[in-house]
Amino acid sequence: MKILVCITHVPDTTSKIQFSDNNTKFDKSGVQFIIGPYDDYALARAVELKEQLGASLTVLNVGEVETEPTLRKALAIGADDAIRVNTFPKDSLFVAQQIAAIAKQNNYDLILMGRESIDFNGGMVHGMVGEMLGMPSVSPVMKLEIEGNTVKMAREIEGGKEYLEAKLPLVAGCQEPIAEWKIPNMRGIMSARTKPLQVVDPLEESNASEVISYQLPPAKGAVKLVDKDNVEELVRLLKNEAKVL
């Protein structure tokens, strides 16, 4: 059994988002980068499955050299080896093409991703890779068990969940509570230094879309406070001023 987990290298969820170069570049100053939170859930579940089934576990990132510490962290959490496709991840189609190419060479039985990246929030790469490989794709998956060749899953839907079954191979976009995030221990961190991290060249670029500029939302005005003993005033404001009632 071979498992692939695709991880993003994204700003920490508390980061202040800013842009530079006349709003054409993401400003990395003071920003700490992490494994995408949903990818971290996927990785945590993959480590559990690896232990349970004796599977091999590879992590993959499409990104430039700066993402290597994030891949090393995934190795410290429990992946056996890492692959980095050495290119800027310019859009989801391009990223999906790179992932599908690696997957075709290595015949993974299970490909886990996060439900969405937290930079572009597309929630698309898993479906694209599934279609490219002719495999089912399921997202957002909040529970995933493997019994022989069968995958049993729970998927979040509006207002609840649905339970599904499919056969391996399969692509899944994961979210909590599929597993608890794992924090690397000292042994993991030591061993991660010597685990293999392979750098491969990208396929030719597709040109489906391109970001030309970024923009921040307009600053919020000051809050209007209403006295706690005068809640009728709040209702009036919501009705007459904000016009939302």
């Binding site: 040109n207 879309s209 030309i212 923009q215 939302p217």
Partner: peptide, 17 residues
């Protein structure tokens, strides 16, 4: 125009297809 960084920003994107 699309929302990115979980609503913290927007990106003006050119579509070529």
């Amino acid at each position: 125009k699309r929302s990115i960084y979980t609503g913290k920003a927007f990106a003006e994107t050119v579509v070529n297809k």
